[in-house]
């Protein structure tokens, strides 16, 4: 059992890491990755929502009729998201302003509903929680990687700390929406190359 839990947890970091491996949750990954700080905030919000929704979905999995399960899952997820919204507003107000509309949009983040539908409704609560935690942290790592590239090259800072000399002009394109698409595409391509190398070596 313990081994299963660890396995479900770790798969979120490489084998099934989203959105790098699975094209799920691309939208927030592009939108909030101009700064590492906002990427971290978004990541932890998603971790919380995923754990809560996975846990609750797993708890009610035997009593919910199949036909209305999506409606029930969506209600649970939306509740978790509103809790995050309220708590963030109360204790992390500046972060809440930066993330703005992307906090309520966690509701329609495919990862959250996807994990409820594909995993939590078929598995006991322990496994579901570790799956949610792993997936959420994997998502956070992906976001931070993208945001690091964009923030370091785009504005010459990391988490607000300058990494280049003060006269670094900044690569503004990366901070603009088109830059996000290009960086993310290139990152996916390099993931493809790396995992193909690994497969070849193992074969």
């Amino acid at each position: 059992m313990a081994a299963r839990i660890v396995q479900e947890f770790t798969k979120g970091f490489w084998k099934e890491i989203a959105p790098l491996r699975f094209a799920l949750g691309i939208c927030p990954a592009l939108a909030v990755s101009t700064k590492v700080e906002s990427a971290l905030g978004m990541g932890f919000a998603v971790v919380f929502v995923l754990c809560l929704s996975n846990g609750l979905v797993s708890l009610v999995r035997h009593i919910v009729p199949d036909k209305v399960r999506i409606a029930v899952f969506i209600s649970i997820i939306a509740t978790a998201v509103v809790i995050v919204e309220l708590v963030m507003q109360a204790y992390f107000y500046p972060l809440f302003l930066v993330l703005g509309i992307w906090i309520p949009l966690i509701v329609v983040n495919c990862i959250v509903l996807g994990r409820a539908e594909a995993f939590a409704r078929k598995n006991p609560i322990g496994l579901s929680l570790s799956d949610g935690l792993g997936m959420g942290l994997g998502f956070t790592v992906s976001l931070v990687v993208i945001a690091s590239i964009r923030e370091v090259l785009g504005s010459g800072t990391w988490l607000g700390i300058p990494v280049f000399p003060a006269d670094y002009p900044g690569f503004g394109f990366l901070l603009r929406p088109p830059g996000a698409f290009v960086i993310f595409g290139l990152l996916l391509a390099s993931m493809n190359v790396i995992s193909r190398r690994i497969e070849k070596r193992n074969a």
């Binding site: 595409g185 290139l186 996916l188």
Partner: peptide, 22 residues
């Protein structure tokens, strides 16, 4: 190129499209 097939090239194309819209 093989590495760009599928999702990566779609995203990069979207970026270019975004530039022209901008």
């Amino acid at each position: 190129p093989a590495a760009l097939c599928g999702v990566p090239i779609t995203l990069i194309t979207a970026g270019m499209m975004g530039l022209s819209f901008a």
